[in-house]
Amino acid sequence: MAQDKRVGIVLVSHSKEVADSVAALALGLAGVPEAPVTGAGGLPGGGLGTSAELITEAAHRMDSGAGVALLVDLGSAVLTVKSLLAEGDELPEPARLVDAPLVEGAVAAVVTAAGGADLETVAAAAEEAYAYRKL
């Protein structure tokens, strides 16, 4: 599997620190320091919120031709990504909003993407994280 065409992963949170830290956590747990994952958190000038510009920029930066999976926290992060997808030309093709818990889903997505899986497989792995029960 060609390593230069891996699925990109964008982690969207209201908080820049949360998004960047979850990206670092997923990289660390996946043991693949060079996997294409990045945070897109907070507002461009700092502060809590969701930025369509930061998300769009991150998605294009992570895209190497195999598509981009976007994992989000809640509220406006969900709505902003949904509306960017509905717009059609803002995000790289294919891009997908993944219905997954942010932290657990990010780890699953990064591990799967690092192995060269396609976008559908990466998304499925992240979505499976909902089935991981802690009790």
């Binding site: 507002l43 369509a52 509306s83 960017l84």
Partner: peptide, 15 residues
């Protein structure tokens, strides 16, 4: 609006 609001009202009013 989508690119500047930063809250849920951005994508909602933008849409």
């Amino acid at each position: 609006l989508v690119s500047t609001v930063g809250g849920a009202s951005g994508p909602l009013y933008g849409t």
